[in-house]
Design a binder for these strands. Structure first.
Lengths: 240, 240
DNA sequence: GAGTGGTCTAGACCACACA
DNA sequence: GTGTGGTCTAGACCACTCC
């Protein structure tokens, strides 16, 4: 009657791993024992082990990398969605990370569909596109697709390989970006997105769609960003 | 060599259900076929069926309710995290929902631990606490725990059963709340939290911690809110 | 009582990673 | 080649819901 219910066994494993993390016996980015090792240690079936690991993954405590295994999550990059200016490089350095990014592809294209609507331009208007990945301390954390109005920044593309995009726009074109619209959605990473960051399909992620104005109020940039969910923390501080 | 890889079978089921949703053959809040029905229809094992359903759940397309089954998600409440004022009742009505809330428990307590730190008051300072759930169109979507500085609003608790909390503070105490700090985190709902909203453990959720000032700049309220992840959409629009 | 979702076992085969 | 995670099967028992 008043008996305590049996706790599910996956909770035992989950708590064990949380303890390892709490006590520092698993350092950030350290690999966990293999799933089969855990089945032996806890006399559990591999399905049950994977159930426990999946829960920890969705809580952001651990993450998977490729097919290489499960790893303890690192420190989160704190990100303020209420700020109108966003500069990954500066933000990360301020928080003690070593950020890096790599352009995977860039070029010109013509506006159609959603992009045409968002930019509010005629179909066929020329856009620059940039696909890149970014990392913190050597660990890949995001994949993004940026789109710019080509006419406002001729010769833009070669410059961004080595300099932060916001710096190039400010210094070379006197364009200051202001975030106008921000959409945030927790997602499962689709195969293609995940593969760019070296993650397995269905890794938990956070998606951002940003629409940015120039100081003249014109929409000049649209970003789609896909972040590893455990790599960031969303926190707004209001100054008023 | 150039052969297409076999698609995983759970993807077949996943896409089938997405099609049902897209075509409107599953209306919002309509129950899906039982897991065992789906195993028969698709000649799949129940584990595989549950895998597919879990992915759809984490994408916010479907949700579970109690042990009653899986349901198609409804329309999302659009929520702007950059706004300093938040009023669930008004926000929901403006978007065509019929909101409701229910106070589960309320009373007085003394500040300790994190609450004492957040309020920045002496240990033992009297606080009001209110635990409540909220629903949209009859479907429970959040559970929250509010804490107030008791001294600024004597006689507060009986009033909030029937009136929105922000209205009571404004009309009866001339207190206007300003969001000062906002923390957003995707979570798995823990057993206790989930049970308040009639959800099973590990339902995907979004957690908010809000710290609110009065117009005098004093911290007067701290909220912890747990939302069903599929019930809201985060979107900021900047007016500048 | 029949059916539901939640938990769990004991296997299996595959593609891929690493040594 | 050995071990890894990803996918999948064929069962089982339980607590709970609904009729």
């Amino acid at each position: 009657m008043g008996e305590r219910k049996e706790k599910p066994q996956y909770l035992t494993l989950k708590r064990f791993i949380l303890e390892l993390l709490r006590k520092g016996k698993l350092s950030p980015h350290e690999k966990l024992p293999s799933e089969r090792d855990l089945t032996k240690q806890f006399a559990l079936n591999r399905n049950t082990v994977r159930h426990a690991l999946g829960i920890l993954e969705r809580e952001g405590k651990i993450y998977r990398s490729g097919r290489k295994g499960w790893f303890a999550s690192g420190q989160r990059l704190v990100f303020d969605p209420s700020k109108e200016h966003v500069n990954f490089d500066k933000l990360a350095r301020k928080q003690g990370f070593t950020p890096a990014w790599q352009v995977l592809e860039s070029g010109t294209m013509q506006a159609t569909g959603e992009l045409q609507e968002l930019f509010n331009v005629e179909e066929g208007t020329e856009l620059f596109h940039v696909f890149e990945t970014g990392s913190l301390d050597g660990h890949q954390v995001y994949y993004s697709e940026y789109f710019f109005l080509a006419e406002i920044c001729p010769g833009f593309l070669p410059k961004i390989v080595s300099r932060p995009m916001t710096d190039v726009l400010r210094e070379d074109y006197s364009i200051h970006l202001y975030q106008k619209d921000l959409l945030i959605r927790p997602i499962n990473m689709e195969e293609e997105t995940a593969s760019h960051i070296g993650l397995p399909t269905h890794s938990p992620g956070i998606f951002f769609r940003r629409i940015k104005n120039s100081q003249q109020g014109r929409i000049v940039q649209v970003d789609y960003e896909y972040w590893r969910a455990d790599s960031i923390e969303l926190r707004s501080t209001f100054s008023s």
